[in-house]
Lab assay of single mutants.
Amino acid sequence: MATDAALRRLLRLHRTEIAVAVDSAFPLLHALADHDVVPEDKFQETLHLKEKEGCPQAFHALLSWLLTQDSTAILDFWRVLFKDYNLERYGRLQPILDSFPKDVDLSQPRKGRKPPAVPKALVPPPRLPTKRKASEEARAAAPAALTPRGTASPGSQLKAKPPKKPESSAEQQRLPLGNGIQTMSASVQRAVAMSSGDVPGARGAVEGILIQQVFESGGSKKCIQVGGEFYTPSKFEDSGSGKNKARSSSGPKPLVRAKGAQGAAPGGGEARLGQQGSVPAPLALPSDPQLHQKNEDECAVCRDGGELICCDGCPRAFHLACLSPPLREIPSGTWRCSSCLQATVQEVQPRAEEPRPQEPPVETPLPPGLRSAGEEVRGPPGEPLAGMDTTLVYKHLPAPPSAAPLPGLDSSALHPLLCVGPEGQQNLAPGARCGVCGDGTDVLRCTHCAAAFHWRCHFPAGTSRPGTGLRCRSCSGDVTPAPVEGVLAPSPARLAPGPAKDDTASHEPALH
């Protein structure tokens, strides 16, 4: 009773807030009518008042009428009001819900409408889902798969039609296919003929059939049928067999079959498995989609049935006599038709004709302190090069084509190399640097090759510096006499390219 009084008091307290929050009759008014909170006449009256005075006034009048009803109607109103779709449509209802007392429970059932309790003993237990329907569909599909699609060729003596089998029958139906081979029951999904010589313990000319048996419980189990008994694959494991010639990621696949039913060829011909030897223990289905393919039931050349050999690369099948050149017997292992072999060759040939990528240039590290003349020119003028003790990398590039010797140069053309002071002394051009340390401070000019250098860098042994005729380390061993002091540049003949010694390969005349 306390809860009923509290709900009535809360409705009177929030009546105006609810009326202002509800700006549309749908969905709240319609939901109240659906849950029998508002009768039909009051529903029509509220809609009429909404058209006349507006939605807030109409709902305020409806809530005032609701306060005169019993506690069950008020409880049902609060339940409908706080439904998710009403809270989404009328956003101003959320503060009312947040301020609702926590001790007021809106989930209690309506009085007088409590459903009768059902004894637990009368409640049926839930049924577990079964796979009976899938099993029945598999039974119905198996006879259809064994139905012949056409008439065999005159040369083929193997013609068999499976008798119709009602689904209610649980007995196995067997077809006489000759040579002791028996087909599987209607619940078998796949059958492959297997030679009895590969099964340990088999006697006589009995041949087993590799099947997948579907049981009534819905589970499946792969086994071997020899005669009327089934054997699990673990009985046929043979770890010492060295003649297993397995197909790549293979499961067994029928390579020879008669049109209309699988079996042995007439005249004692023995149908073979995809792999010879003992049956392997793992009978998992292969991951290669080509091995799941269903080959055609007629020859791809003459479009006739009979004894066919199936290609492992495509769905086509052929007569042995229709092949070019014809085959006398079934080859062992994987067999592919000429079209598949030709496609494989065409895929391999473009790969062989692809040009080989060019090898990157060989990189040879230079000892610290040495650099090529090109690196000396590329440096920024007026700045010493940083990191001189790091190992430089010199790339061996292809030799350029031989060019004509340089033409003779006048001494005026070499004027930018040297600057003559007032006393006739050779001065260095701006930006000249030593080729060893890279520093341009207090550098000297070689009178023979006009290269800038430090005496301490080229002659670290402490050799005394002569007063005139300074030469760098590369030119100090040259027998050519030094030019007379005061000459602007060496003779043009000295600039012609010539053979250089091994220790002077990195010091070429550089223009500054």
Rank of each mutant, 00 (worst) to 15 (best):
S195N: 06
S250W: 09
P233R: 12
S241V: 08
S71K: 13
R247D: 03
P254E: 07
L75P: 01
F82G: 04
V256G: 11
V20Q: 00
K221M: 10
E237S: 07
G263M: 09
E137H: 04
K120G: 11
G91T: 04
G54H: 02
R247V: 12
D198S: 13
F77M: 02
S241Q: 10
R257Q: 06
S153M: 11
I224S: 05
S153L: 12
G219W: 10
Q212I: 00
S185L: 01
E229C: 02
F77S: 01
A186S: 09
L210V: 07
A142S: 09
W78S: 03
A186Y: 01
K114N: 05
K120D: 06
E88D: 03
R110W: 15
E136L: 06
S156R: 09
E237Y: 05
Y90Q: 00
L210S: 03
P143M: 10
F59I: 10
Q157P: 11
S99D: 03
A186L: 02
V118K: 02
V118D: 04
L146N: 03
V104Q: 12
V188G: 04
E237F: 00
K259D: 00
G112E: 13
T151M: 04
G242E: 02
V199F: 13
A170Y: 15
G201C: 10
L93H: 01
K245P: 11
D103E: 15
R15K: 00
F215K: 01
A5L: 10
E137A: 14
M194I: 11
R190L: 03
D34P: 07
R139F: 15
G204P: 11
L7V: 01
S156C: 14
D84Y: 04
R110D: 15
P148R: 09
G268N: 10
A193R: 09
G91L: 03
S217N: 08
V38C: 04
S135Q: 12
L29Q: 03
A142C: 10
S107Y: 08
E136G: 07
L11P: 04
G269E: 11
S99Y: 00
T130R: 03
W78C: 02
D103H: 08
D103T: 02
R174C: 03
G150Y: 15
R79W: 02
I74K: 04
G242S: 06
P166N: 14
A138N: 04
I224G: 03
W65M: 01
F43A: 00
W78G: 03
G242T: 00
A141V: 10
S99M: 11
P56I: 07
A21G: 02
G219M: 09
K159N: 14
K114M: 09
A142P: 08
F100L: 02
F236Y: 05
A264C: 07
A141I: 07
V226H: 05
G54Y: 06
K42D: 00
P119D: 08
A186E: 06
R132I: 01
E45G: 02
Q212D: 01
P254C: 13
